[in-house]
Design a protein around this nucleic acid. Sequence first.
DNA 1: ACTATATAGTACCATATTAGTACCATTTAA
DNA 2: TTAAATGGTACTAATATGGTACTATATAGT
Lengths: 148, 148
Amino acid sequence: MLRISKMTDYAIMVMVELHGLRGEVLSAHALAERSHLELPTVSKVLKLLVKTDLVASYRGPSGGYSLERDAEEISVAEIIAAIEGPIAMTECSVEEGLCAQEAVCGLRGNWQRISLAIAKAMEAVSLAEMAQPVKTPAAPLHITTFNA
Amino acid sequence: MLRISKMTDYAIMVMVELHGLRGEVLSAHALAERSHLELPTVSKVLKLLVKTDLVASYRGPSGGYSLERDAEEISVAEIIAAIEGPIAMTECSVEEGLCAQEAVCGLRGNWQRISLAIAKAMEAVSLAEMAQPVKTPAAPLHITTFNA
DNA sequence: ACTATATAGTACCATATTAGTACCATTTAA
DNA sequence: TTAAATGGTACTAATATGGTACTATATAGT
Ligand code: FES
Ligand code: FES
């Protein structure tokens, strides 16, 4: 199904929640409530987001989390990468030597091209755009591919 | 990592092997050898590909498999879909009611847009193109996204 | 200085998914 | 009739994921 992990999905939900509260600091607890997710899960996700400098954290009482940058400046690609690492369709798309079949399989170059294209597509979608609900997905993203 | 399953990877390898032999019928055993994969795995993959009408199968001695259509007419999207079902980033991209958070989460529309874009990108890449090795992925796929 | 509250980090477990295997039924060319 | 191939099902093992628990550390407020 070519899907992102649930953790990544959660991460986006939390980031969306954080958006619109720019400047305001929310605790993990508050974020869990607002996003209807479990606290431990939200905590885990937030820690990963802090590590990758997408959200700022403040300790102590009245501490919590806030977006590190404007939602317009954060891409979904970054969020995905923060949770599940580099965007790549196959092992070999990440770097040489990770795919068992590499010696006898010439697909690596093409997988890299495809992975790169998808990565770019996600880089072009900002958190701010993601936060705006779309009822009728009338205009899908437009993608041109090989030989274009 | 947003990756396809290994089975899907294998499926593409097998399809690539089948390509260039248009008309010729190869047994699962022969395909396993050529693609350096295990026979049971190749068999399993081939069965799925037959079900989705991507390859034709012939029983009995001197039976085997061959491409159902020209490699130019088969997209990687079809192969991926054959092995792992609809191309969708999240549960809710497939159809309503599959995502646990749906009631309180407005992301569904956007996920659908993104999933659709990726699906289209893969539809644009044919098996024939995939079979041509690319050493230097100089020109990646070009993708334009939201608001374009 | 003390304390309560919050994040940071690590380590862990339970479950779901995936990869891989085995077996037997069915078809068919020789 | 036989042997070689696919078709289908069911099973096992390995891995990845999702979720949890616990301890350490920082800090605002009293
Ligand atoms: S799929 Fe990775 S080397 Fe072929
Ligand atoms: S991510 Fe599926 S409904 Fe929000």
